[in-house]
Design a protein around this nucleic acid. Structure first.
Lengths: 234, 234
DNA sequence: GATGTAATTCGTCGTTCTGACGAGATATCA
DNA sequence: TGATATCTCGTCAGAACGACGAATTACATC
């Protein structure tokens, strides 16, 4: 970035920067991603990740959060958001040179507003979404977001943001099983999670629904890094 | 990204996208970062990370690699490059709305061309660079790049790209010690690295320089993921 | 109620991995 | 020749994990 900003050789086509969101949540113990269908013009009916342009006076993170609350009523609190990566293939948008900064958002289950708002597909099971043809390069963005989410469960306490404020160890295990797509041993999982100092704080109360012994309620503690990590082997 | 690309409300200021590079290498067992000083106008004399604009017909990765070879003669082979993250604070560049996609590049020691080319500072020890005031938000970009590099040594074979094609276990350990800034037990390190299947391939020859028993030469194997990871505790 | 089923939680056992460290092998240096 | 330095192999105790048994405590049904 050493030459003038408007020199002809470097900026002769329209350049636009947008954000795209991979919003994941858990519904009925299945991982869902938020899709919309309100693409204009060229990508007429293809489902797409929610997103929009970055306003001139707006930081990247703010643009992502604005789009998030526009598409869903999800508050910034009780969700986790992080930048995923950027996509800038020359031909990814035929309207011009369009860069996209993708964000990964994890939201607790049973997201507040019915995500139908904009005639979109709304919450879609991820295994179903992976089979769809999405607009632009959104298939790849979704895949990258899933990779990131799956990897982060290994070494962070991020699974707790999929849960309500108070949750049981079994609920937390359900998050791992849904995101990783495999079942985990309840006993070893319980030992790992309750044995990591500062990860879970016991509420002191129990909850029981359905058969079986009532489960202790926990809330997320201060520990945000799992050390040693909880690795998925095979 | 649903409205027209050129609608007034979303794109009323000039928007530019550039790449910035955090290029790390090892010189004399110390981690160095490549800095330049050829900032124009406003950031006159502040040292900066190398970088430049993304050309209209150029993919992001290609722009990063072009800048890399312009600033250094480093070939794409024998280096590792990956996208780090993007920076788009409104006020990060007073010339207009400038987004930057940062890349992390790891290069083997003794980088080919003396990196003086553009009257820059060239290779700078990272602890020294962290104390400098860099142009724009490059201090943060550098810090993010270092975090990424340090973290990746834990669970990947990335340390090998800092080494020449054939190297000893002690050399590899020197990479970890330089990047992490702490010393490691030579015996446990040797056990871990030679014990991970497919990580190192023995060349069959020895090398000795200076006193001590000659060391076996290895080259990087196919294993690129360290499982279980090699974690730094304290 | 008595019994079966289901879910949570605590324990056990053997294996693997790690940190700390001893010690032999093999070079250079004085 | 001896001192020193470095690489490499071993040992040992403790931590962590996978597999799994079993006790606790609810619900469901007879």
């Amino acid at each position: 970035m050493h030459r003038s900003l408007w020199s002809a050789d470097s900026q002769s086509v329209a350049t636009a920067v947008g954000v795209d969101l991979v919003v994941l949540t858990l519904i009925d113990a299945r991982l869902h991603v938020l899709l919309t269908s309100r693409e204009s013009e060229l990508f007429a009916s293809l489902p797409a990740l929610p997103g929009g342009w970055v306003h001139p006076d707006e930081n990247l993170d703010d643009a992502a959060m604005r789009e998030l609350s526009e598409e869903t009523g999800l508050a910034r609190l009780r969700t986790h958001q992080e930048q995923l990566r950027s996509y800038g293939e020359v031909s990814r948008d035929s309207r011009g040179r369009v860069f996209s900064v993708a964000y990964l958002v994890l939201a607790p289950g049973a997201p507040d507003p019915a995500p139908d708002s904009a005639a979109g597909r709304g919450w879609t099971p991820v295994d179903e979404a992976l089979g769809l043809r999405l607009a632009r390069d959104h298939n790849r963005i979704l895949a990258d977001g899933l990779d990131r989410a799956r990897a982060k469960l290994e070494y962070t306490s991020l699974a707790t943001v999929f849960c309500p404020a108070e949750f049981t160890v079994a609920e937390l295990r359900g998050v791992y099983e849904a995101v990783w797509g495999r079942s985990l041993d309840p006993r070893n999982f319980h030992r790992k999670m309750t044995g990591t100092p500062g990860l879970l704080v016991e509420c002191g109360r129990l909850r029981q629904e359905g058969p079986g012994r009532p489960a202790a309620l926990y809330r997320a503690g201060r520990t945000r890094v799992l050390n040693p990590p909880f690795v998925r082997e095979p």
